[in-house]
Nucleic acid binder design. Structure first.
Lengths: 150, 150
DNA sequence: CGCCATTATTTGCATTTACAAATAACAGCG
DNA sequence: CGCTGTTATTTGTAAATGCAAATAATGGCG
């Protein structure tokens, strides 16, 4: 066990990468990717989100998201709509086909949650999640100042 | 707080992405990227690693790593050597310039560790890291069986 | 020794990604 | 109402990525 094993960003990336790769492999036969799942999951949580909102939620850069959504639209999984209130914005909506795919992906996602947390009791699981939220908030706070200048 | 906020892989990815993006931005002025840092950090831990070993430790896919190392070699940060014991393998070594860059990146990396764990006491910090190792091991165990067939 | 299955790395190639610039529409103010 | 600065999204373009195939070398076994 070297220094890397004690370095938090390393451990974070390692765990995240591993789960991402495994999940990707698993959903490929369904014609899905990790990124499409992220978008579908975000829309499952709340449909009709804006691109920027989706980018924030999924951690997918907006220009990347644009082209990802292009593909998903072509596949008939989602549809874009010009926001009625603000014509600059675009809202994204899952189509019936998109919702069907989501339903097929949900149990796989649930299984990954279970597998990842194998051996964790309820208290420990809750603690990890709380810690991950704190880590995120800490880094987020580091970035935010940039946006508040002026 | 929707369902996503309770989904571990989501929290993991969100925290990891955020820290990765922030770190990347920060090291760009030094002519470095997150990926080059990962390679340099792995070599700092132990020099002369094989490509496959590096791929495993950095979570960078081997074919991606090959090309990343091409670029690092061109920049004079690392050098490849054919492994004396096994001519199939290539070992990678940090050059003086590579080590100098590593020395400049180390304090930045340390700072990220500190910032990410702001508000965590020593016990909590240790617990998060242990949890991340367990998560990784759990997913790893899910994958391993594939390699043991035959 | 020579063959064969296995392992380590690289290469081919199509896709994904991200930064920066461009476009489109808003909001406030003269 | 027509500027002006800001916000939301897309597009241009070059680089990074990952799967699969190719290459190179090993080890075991007849």
């Amino acid at each position: 066990m070297g220094p890397l094993d004690g370095y938090l960003p390393y451990l974070l990336n390692r765990a995240g990468s591993r789960i991402a790769t495994a999940f990707s492999e698993e959903v490929r036969p369904l014609g899905a990717t990790l990124q499409t799942w992220r978008v579908l999951a975000a829309l499952h949580e709340r449909d009709g989100r804006r691109m920027g909102d989706l980018s924030e939620t999924t951690s997918i850069e907006v220009s990347t998201l644009t082209r990802l959504v292009d593909g998903m639209e072509k596949k008939g999984l989602v549809s874009r709509r010009r926001d009625a209130a603000d014509a600059r914005a675009v809202t994204l909506h899952a189509t019936p086909a998109g919702r069907r795919l989501t339903q097929r992906l949900l149990p796989i996602a649930e299984r990954y949650e279970t597998v990842a947390l194998a051996g964790f009791n309820a208290v420990e699981a809750k603690a990890v999640k709380a810690a991950l939220r704190r880590l995120y908030a800490n880094i987020d706070a580091l970035e935010k100042p940039h946006r508040l200048r002026g």
